[in-house]
Computed example of a mutant assay.
Amino acid sequence: MATLRYGDSRAAIHIEDRALAHLKVVIATKLRRNESFTLSWKHPEVDGPGRSTIWIHPSIPLWFTFDEPEPPQLNGKWIEQLMHSVNSTGGIMLIDEVLEAPED
C-alpha cells in the first residue's frame, strides 16, 4: 500500500501502489501548470465507510511513498480518465482502473 502525505500533516493517505502511480502523473501535470484542484477518494474498507477530499495547491508539499521498488507500467486510458476528472468542476476522484477491451 502506497502512501501520500500532504503538507505538514503526519497523517498518511493510503492508496494502492498502482493507483498512486497513476495519480502522481496527473497531480504532477496539474502542479507543473501551477493549477490547484481537489482530490477525493473513498476510504478503504478497513477504515470504515466514508470519503475524504483535500485541496491540492502548488505551494503545499506532497510526498509519494511506494511499497514496490519498481514503477508499474502505466495505463494511458486510466490516466486519460483521471485527467478528465481533474479538469472537471468536482476535481479529481480516484476511480478504478480503466482496462482496455481485448481486441478480437
Rank of each mutant, 00 (worst) to 15 (best):
L99N: 04
S88H: 03
F66Y: 15
W78P: 00
M83L: 15
N34F: 03
N75D: 15
R32G: 03
F37D: 02
G91N: 08
I60T: 15
F37Q: 01
E68W: 00
D96P: 06
W55S: 09
F37I: 02
E97Y: 04
S59Y: 07
L82W: 05
W78D: 03
M93E: 07
T89K: 12
W63F: 13
T38C: 13
S40Q: 13
W63I: 12
A19R: 10
A28W: 00
V26G: 07
R51T: 05
M93C: 02
P71M: 11
G50T: 02
L62I: 08
S36T: 13
A12V: 07
T65H: 13
K30D: 02
L31K: 04
G91I: 08
H57L: 04
A2R: 03
A11P: 00
P71G: 06
R18A: 10
V86S: 13
Q73R: 07
M1A: 11
L39D: 13
P71Q: 15
T53P: 01
R33D: 15
S36R: 13
D8I: 00
A28G: 00
P102L: 14
T38D: 14
I79S: 02
E80R: 04
H22V: 08
F66S: 05
T29G: 04
L82Q: 08
D67Q: 15
E80V: 00
L74I: 09
V26T: 09
H22P: 03
D104L: 14
P58K: 03
I92Y: 01
S40V: 08
P71T: 10
I27Q: 06
A2K: 02
A11K: 11
G76K: 07
D96S: 15
A11L: 10
E100V: 10
P69A: 12
V98M: 11
R5E: 12
V25E: 14
E80K: 06
I27M: 13
E103D: 06
N87R: 11
T29Q: 07
S59G: 06
R5M: 11
T29I: 02
L4W: 09
Y6M: 01
E70A: 07
W41T: 07
V26F: 08
V26A: 10
I95F: 01
H57A: 14
R18F: 12
P58G: 06
T29N: 06
F64K: 10
L4S: 08
M1K: 05
I60K: 09
E103I: 02
Y6N: 04
P44V: 12
Q81C: 06
R33P: 00
K77G: 06
N34L: 05
S40L: 10
D67E: 15
I56T: 04
T89A: 15
G7A: 04
E70K: 06
A11F: 02
N75F: 01
S40T: 15
P69I: 05
T38Y: 14
P61Y: 09
